[in-house]
Design a protein around this nucleic acid. Structure first.
Length: 225
DNA sequence: GACCAGGCACATC
DNA sequence: GATGTGCATGGT
């Protein structure tokens, strides 16, 4: 069913071309700057860094944190995010001496755990970095994803933590970074277009699926397939 | 002016 | 472990 919903969304909305960063490092920076803000604001902050020649870990390491904060103002939370960017750059220096290629030999789980120890990197940002910058098969869960699948009635059996949702998706989809990339982007698109404030999807490309699961499985509790 | 946007850390109970 | 709060800009 997860694949069916993906195919519906892709047919209806088409490819989304997410994370058009020029380098993996730019994508990593964007993942932090996009936290809890619009992508447009985050992109403006990335552009400021780009115009100042700061889209390299070495350059970000050198710039004073106050100056960095000033440049990323458009993304909001600029004092907190400047510290987060500094922490991420420190992590890159310590783990791979700023050479992302060296991460290729590490397992996805190892990198994920390591990223989660970095200040300012939570599960969604870590997974965005793994998927969109490092092209690892990790499904990114966000508020939109939860909203859509909660409404369908397709939710984890036990708890509803980030990891529970992620396990649900990854247990039902092939581990394909291209698929995960597009799927997450399509869910965000769908949430913005068709699945905003209504309690249940109506007149959208997966309305029949929402109705079906509300009518047939909700009464039996949550399902995992 | 209220609300939201591609979260997270920290304090408190 | 769950819940509340601070962080802040820019668009609707």
């Amino acid at each position: 069913m997860f694949a069916v919903i993906y195919n519906r969304l892709f047919t209806y909305y088409g490819p989304q071309y997410w994370w058009p960063g020029e380098t993996p490092f730019e994508v990593m920076i964007g993942a932090v700057l996009a936290q809890s803000t619009s992508w447009k604001n985050a992109a403006n902050a990335v552009d400021n860094l780009k115009h100042h020649g700061l889209l390299s870990p070495q350059a970000l390491h050198k710039i004073p944190i106050e100056d960095l904060a000033g440049l990323i103002r458009p993304s909001g939370y600029f004092n907190a995010k400047s510290l987060k960017l500094k922490s991420l750059v420190d992590w890159l220096r310590q783990t791979c001496d700023y050479k992302l290629d060296l991460l290729e030999d590490s397992s996805t789980d190892h990198i994920r755990r390591s990223l989660l120890s970095v200040y300012g990197i939570g599960p969604e940002t870590a997974d965005s970095i793994l998927l969109y910058a490092l092209e690892r098969p990790v499904f990114v869960i966000d508020a939109y994803t939860r909203r859509i699948f909660d409404r369908i009635g397709f939710t984890p059996v036990k708890d509803k933590s980030y990891d529970d949702y992620q396990r649900l998706f990854m247990a039902n989809l092939e581990p394909d970074p291209v698929l995960y990339n597009e799927y997450h982007a399509l869910l965000v698109k769908h949430a913005k277009i068709s699945c905003r404030k209504q309690p249940v999807c109506k007149n959208c490309c997966i309305a029949d699926i929402c109705d079906f699961y509300h009518n047939h499985t909700q009464a039996n509790g949550d399902r995992d397939e």
